[in-house]
Nucleic acid binder design. Structure first.
Lengths: 152, 152
DNA sequence: AGAAATCCTAGTAAAGAACTAGGATTAAAC
DNA sequence: GTTTAATCCTAGTTCTTTACTAGGATTTCT
């Protein structure tokens, strides 16, 4: 039940992007440097976020990325689902009927997986990017050294 | 964010155990057969559940396992944590101070991980084993064929 | 004594995660 | 119009973890 680096790095990257893209597009290189993420790997994460319509890109010199919508309209859930796929704890056929688990009407545990899924989605959809950006700014004002880097 | 087979198989096994151990201990072999789980693998899962004090074992011929406490006092959370370890989505140092992420006071995302963790635990701790056992019995009455096996 | 069970530790094959690599394309700046 | 700085696209590769498998030792009932 762990998030991969995709979700962890990606969320940090998007908070960073939201914070620095108010006046001009932000390049992968600058995010990668600030967040200590491999530039080449981050590239792929940005591609996923773009594909899901959370960010837009500007190509060529001076280009970079900006948010595709307002930070208050992007939830942590949007970000994590874009990067991790569905957050449900089990790929249960009872949810998407295309898969073939023939036991779905006799299955007891599907009730459990469904409840977990619901509660996760509720939690992550309630948190919006703008909140995290404000938090981040407040944190940086308090600790201006900026030497401490988070791995998660 | 997926549960491994440990959590999935283990929960099914424990529901099965609860259901069949009312009169006598239940062997790994019989659970494995009913639930289509490798006997040798299930052995290891049972060891974890025992270590966490959820079940007790009776050795020797005619032996097997029984619940260590009443089904109503065992939550899905107890089971999943015994098998999967902590359910928190990120091994965040801000939670257990022994680890060394020096950024914990500047870290924004820890707030997110904490919220997710809380909501997952709340969901799984609210579901007790006895509920699932009743559900399971009701299901089997409705579909007595018993041919359908769940993979999750 | 034999059979049926748990207990314990180690090995192993397959899958997935986390990058790395090499370039193609686009567009601003000079 | 060439250079430079950026995104875009697809593969390959290494490392870790998962999901078992294997081989026995021990216990207890019959």
């Amino acid at each position: 039940m762990k998030l991969s680096t995709k979700g962890r790095y990606g969320l940090r990257a998007l908070i960073d992007l939201a914070q620095y893209s108010e006046t001009e597009p932000v390049s992968i290189g600058s995010i990668a440097a600030r967040q200590s993420i491999s530039e080449r790997y981050l590239e792929q994460l940005m591609a996923m976020l773009k594909k899901e319509g959370l960010i837009t890109s500007i190509r060529g010199a001076g280009g970079g990325y900006v948010l595709a919508k307002e930070a208050k309209d992007i939830s942590v859930g949007d970000v994590l689902r874009a990067l991790e796929g569905s957050l449900e704890p089990v790929d249960c056929a009872a949810f998407h009927t295309d898969e073939g688990c023939d036991a779905s009407d006799i299955c007891v545990t599907k009730y459990v997986w469904h409840k977990i899924n619901e509660s996760i989605n509720q939690a992550v959809d309630a948190i919006k990017l703008d909140t995290l950006v404000s938090e981040s700014k407040a944190m940086q004002d308090k600790h201006p050294s900026g030497e401490m880097k988070c791995k998660n």
